[in-house]
Simulated scan of single mutants.
Amino acid sequence: MTISETIDNPPDLIRLTDDTLHLRLAGDWLAGSLPLTLREVEDALSGKTPGSIRFETKDLQTWDSGLLTFLIALKKLCDAREIAFDDGNLPDGARRLLALASAVPEQQAGKGSSRAPLLERVADRALAAWKSVVDMLDFLGEVTLACGRLLTGRARFRRSDLWAIMRECGADALPIVSLISALVGLIFAFVGAVQLSMFGAEIYVASLVAIAVVRVMGAIMTGIIMAGRTGAAFAARIGTMQVNEEIDALATLGISPIDFLVLPRIIALVVMMPLLCLYADLMGILGGLAVGVFMLDLNLGEYLEMTKLAVGLKDFWIGLFHSAVFGVLVALSGCLRGLQCGRSASAVGDAATSAVVTGIVNIIVATAVITVICNILGI
């Protein structure tokens, strides 16, 4: 036996037959003037639970987001009451939009995502670390091949870019290197004077400042300055090119991004870092001299003579070797992070930050390794 019931309000739009609720979508369904509301459908379902809802759309004329909003709310109502939602008679556009809206879950405001288990987090960190190591080794391999092409005259980069980068890494960095190096020498002299004055040996402040600055501290401070100044600039510039798809364009033209972008920066820093290190050594010694002569009342000639006796040629070579290694590490860190940059503006900032951190960590680790090697070799 067939049960047919027509709801009077609104007329002829809602009809219940057997186990199916029929909704007739007629006329214009526009936002702000819908012929039917969800509340009226709920009233029609009061005390009744049909098995499905179907639509009659032969009289439907124009519709916009108002119809879609109504259908989304109605589908949620059907899901809550376990009523089958039959959208077969809906317009194709409305059906596709409804499927798209149902495919993307709503974000629950005020509710944080559940934290992953400890083992899962550890595994994710381990996989990320392994991927980072693989990417770094792959990058080092490409740089090695690029250096081979450079030695054979097949590397492709603009000489004008090399000179411009050398100027940026060298002459443009002199003011900040001067300031930091002089202050470091001044601080060493102050610290040494506090201890040596207890034994009446203030004159050895000159030896302390000279050997510390020339052998390692001048190179370390120069490397840290260049990591924060030049390494970040390399990462930001190459990262911006990655965002603008300029690196993809180079690869499309058959030009190796390693040759064109990375190689000139490595050459520039390897050449300029030893020169900056020598300049930093001089400024550090002058900073210590200012403290010794003007605050400890040491004789200028005696201070310079003690500095000469304390520093040997091997100390200069060790400092220059430190600086050359630091130049390679800073250039590699900045270029690697720039090439790994994502495709957004925030990714450029992240790449610059990561380049600075990576460069400084590499400098400290390299200093420890070189110091141990020098100790083993007795130099």
Rank of each mutant, 00 (worst) to 15 (best):
A103F: 01
L34T: 10
T371H: 06
G51Q: 13
A146P: 09
G185H: 06
V41N: 06
L127I: 11
V243N: 10
I225P: 09
G301Y: 05
L100E: 06
F321D: 00
I14L: 15
N9W: 07
M221N: 07
L289C: 05
L36N: 03
L313T: 13
T358V: 01
L67R: 07
S333E: 04
T144Y: 07
R54A: 13
I373Q: 02
C341F: 07
L100A: 08
R125V: 08
S354A: 15
D43I: 11
P264L: 03
L151M: 11
V369E: 13
M217Q: 08
P264Y: 04
L100D: 05
K75T: 01
C147H: 08
M198R: 14
Y279E: 03
I360L: 09
C341A: 14
F190V: 10
V262R: 05
G66L: 03
S323Q: 04
A232S: 15
L275A: 13
P257H: 04
V134C: 11
T6Q: 10
I255V: 14
E82F: 11
A290P: 00
A290R: 01
I176Q: 06
T230Q: 03
L296K: 10
L275H: 09
G27L: 04
T353M: 02
G338I: 10
V133T: 13
L34M: 11
E40T: 12
L329C: 12
I266C: 09
R343V: 08
T252S: 13
I379N: 05
A73E: 13
S33C: 07
D19M: 02
G239L: 12
M226K: 02
T2W: 11
L183F: 15
G338Q: 09
S160P: 02
L320W: 02
I203P: 07
L278W: 03
I72G: 00
S52V: 06
Q107K: 10
D138A: 14
R167Q: 09
V325E: 00
F326V: 02
I364F: 13
Y303F: 15
L90I: 00
E302F: 09
L296T: 11
I285V: 14
G254Y: 08
K131E: 15
V356A: 06
N299Y: 01
G192V: 02
V357Y: 11
L253T: 01
G338E: 11
Y204K: 01
V143P: 04
G292H: 06
L275I: 15
L179G: 02
S33G: 03
L263H: 08
T62C: 03
V291R: 03
S4V: 14
Y303V: 03
G141L: 10
T307M: 15
D297H: 14
N9Q: 13
G112C: 01
C147D: 01
I247Q: 08
I318P: 12
G292A: 12
S114K: 12
